[in-house]
């Protein structure tokens, strides 16, 4: 190839290449512009507060005294938190609340999805009804459950008494039943959402897999374990991660229904943090508890991620 065959261009690049780069540059420019609102929002309202919280965790600060009142205390807040029995109590309750809440709402969601995936009458209406609690505010949900679970006049205990229970539980005002009641309400409000997510995953499972399994003589249970469940694994992982994060940060229902009581029986990590920060004005300590909680949730998420990775569910 002779030099004369090269098109004009000092760098020896073709006009097409420059054009492509120009177009690529333009699209990169436009891409960043599209990203900008979200990026600015993320930096301002997520990253900046997160970094600030990390910094505050190493200080003693009551907010009222302003920036001048910030005192660097090193790891003192973390040392106090990790040596505090109240924190570990809250961690235990949070684990209980989140683990039962996540597993029960996922199992319930899957059961509902399998039911709604069938050709039953009023299926659309049922889907809407089951999804409804997910879009209702936690205060409204709390108010309804407060009436339902009233130990004296609530319909739940009226029903239990009619069935012969002499001393039905005191539910939200009981040290024993307070946390289970909150878990029950959390499961009730999350199960519909999980069902809808599972339902969409179920509808994506190829029908011929079921047909092939049936031809091979697989019964309903076998078809579920060999076709449905593996196909739902990515969805299950997604729900396990998002639900664990959500449930371990659960606050609204607890703040409205029990304020962490009776005693400390429903004081979870989020409520403990709120109490230390907003009631006792110990923002440095509350931020340290927040960081500990953050690390805990991060480890759980990493566990789920690792769990699914070996199975090639997400790439």
């Amino acid at each position: 190839m002779s030099a004369g065959t090269f098109p004009a261009g000092a760098d020896g690049r073709t006009g097409d290449t420059r054009k492509r780069r120009r177009v690529a540059g333009q699209s990169g420019h436009v891409g960043w512009l599209f990203l900008a609102p979200n990026l600015v929002g993320f930096l301002s309202f997520t990253l900046l507060p997160l970094l600030t919280a990390i910094a505050i965790a190493f200080t003693s600060w009551n907010v009222v005294s302003g920036y001048a009142g910030i005192t660097f205390v090193g790891l003192a807040n973390f040392a106090e938190a990790l040596g505090d029995g109240a924190l570990w109590g809250a961690v235990g309750r949070t684990l209980l609340y989140a683990s039962i809440g996540v597993s029960a709402s996922m199992m319930g969601g899957l059961g509902l999805a399998l039911l709604l995936n069938r050709d039953i009458a009023g299926r659309t209406l049922l889907r809407v009804l089951f999804f409804l609690p997910h879009v209702v505010t936690s205060v409204a949900i709390g108010l309804v459950w407060l009436l339902l679970l009233n130990p004296d006049s609530g319909p739940v205990n009226a029903g239990l008494r009619a069935l012969g229970a002499d001393t039905p539980p005191d539910w939200l005002v009981s040290q024993t039943w307070g946390l289970p009641s909150l878990v029950m309400i959390a499961v009730w409000s999350a199960v519909g959402y999980n069902a809808v997510i599972y339902l969409s995953a179920l509808q994506a499972v190829p029908v011929d897999l079921y047909e092939a399994a049936a031809i091979d003589g697989a019964g309903a249970f076998r078809r579920f374990t060999t076709v449905t469940w593996p196909a739902l694994m990515p969805t299950t992982t997604f729900l396990a991660i998002t639900m664990t994060i959500g449930q371990s940060q659960g606050f609204g229902l607890i703040a409205f229904l029990t304020q962490g009581g009776p005693g400390e029986s429903t004081t979870t990590l989020s409520y403990y943090m709120y109490q230390q920060g907003f009631q006792f004005y110990r923002f440095g300590y509350a931020a340290a508890v927040g960081m500990i909680s953050f690390v805990g949730v991060l480890l759980l998420t990493a566990f789920f991620w690792r769990f699914q990775k070996g199975r090639g569910l997400y790439t």
């Binding site: 780069r21 120009r22 690529a24 540059g25 333009q26 990169g28 420019h29 960043w32 900008a36 990026l39 600015v40 930096l43 301002s44 900046l48």
Partner: peptide, 21 residues
């Protein structure tokens, strides 16, 4: 037109915007 934003430029712009916000 045709000058793409570098990551550094975008981050600076975002930080500036955050500051303004």
């Amino acid at each position: 037109i045709g000058t793409p934003f570098s990551r550094r430029t975008v981050l600076k712009a975002a930080a500036g915007a955050a500051g303004i916000a």
